[in-house]
Design a protein around this nucleic acid. Structure first.
Lengths: 127, 127
DNA sequence: TTGACATATTCCCATATGGGTATATAAAGT
DNA sequence: ACTTTATATACCCATATGGGAATATGTCAA
């Protein structure tokens, strides 16, 4: 019972910065050989291969063998779930970007400590 | 040099399904006490506290102490980076949903194995 | 066949993680 | 002061991860 396999779902796949970099190297939608990706992202080849492997298992990229090369290509559709998920919260920042302000306030509150009389639920942030 | 701290960025924070569940429990934007969240997501309290901790560190949720309760609240703005990132790929599926088909094809190809004559770069998927 | 080139795989290792359980801390009530 | 209620922490543990290095595998060229 340790963490769930990261390599199993898109959210986890894109959680890795490097992996996002690799995706970035394929963002134009064109296929690219591992070597090209390696050059672009400047990572040791084995690392790239591994990451590409994860991305492939999740379906974020696809491969085609061509001669001694393996052409990888972004399969953006697999990212849709993520998009759909975050999209749910879009309204929050689209509507009021000032939510950050609020966060600041709260951080301050936290810092101040237990001014436990803070504010009754009924009078606080129930916009 | 083992993996980067997951608890450090939003992408990683939301990579955990449980964490997304918790976020879901706060999706209405209203503040909620840990206990409430616990009841909603049906997870042991310590677990919830930990996850909330991660989410808080990343800024996805904020806390306010009120009496013996800690009211957590979603700070959706922090999810914007994720949204912005995936949004980049939006066009792909918005435009042609049939990309899945292609993936299927490739999988088939893979399965078939090394029919290495697969297809010359010039005639394949350079749409 | 032998050799160069492209990738994937295997090992090994340090470490972050999440879960579970028990416990500390804090606030409220009596 | 003592007890309940609410949360956070501390521990311990199994395990997934990612990195690095070395090596296997596969492919094309002589």
């Amino acid at each position: 019972m340790a963490r769930a396999a990261t390599t199993t779902d898109v959210f986890n796949a894109i959680a890795e910065p490097r992996r996002r970099d690799i995706i970035g190297a394929l963002v134009d939608g064109k296929e690219r050989a591992v070597g090209d990706v390696v050059r672009i992202v400047r990572m040791p080849q084995p690392a790239v291969s591994k990451h590409l492997g994860v991305l492939r298992r999740v379906g974020v990229v696809t491969v085609v063998k061509r001669g001694q090369h393996r052409m990888y290509r972004l399969n953006a559709a697999e990212l849709k779930p993520v998009h759909d998920w975050v999209k749910t919260f879009e309204k929050y920042w689209t509507h009021q970007i000032s939510r950050i302000k609020e966060r600041a306030e709260q951080k301050a509150a936290e810092a101040i400590g237990q001014a436990h009389g803070a504010a009754p639920a009924s009078g606080r942030h129930e916009d």
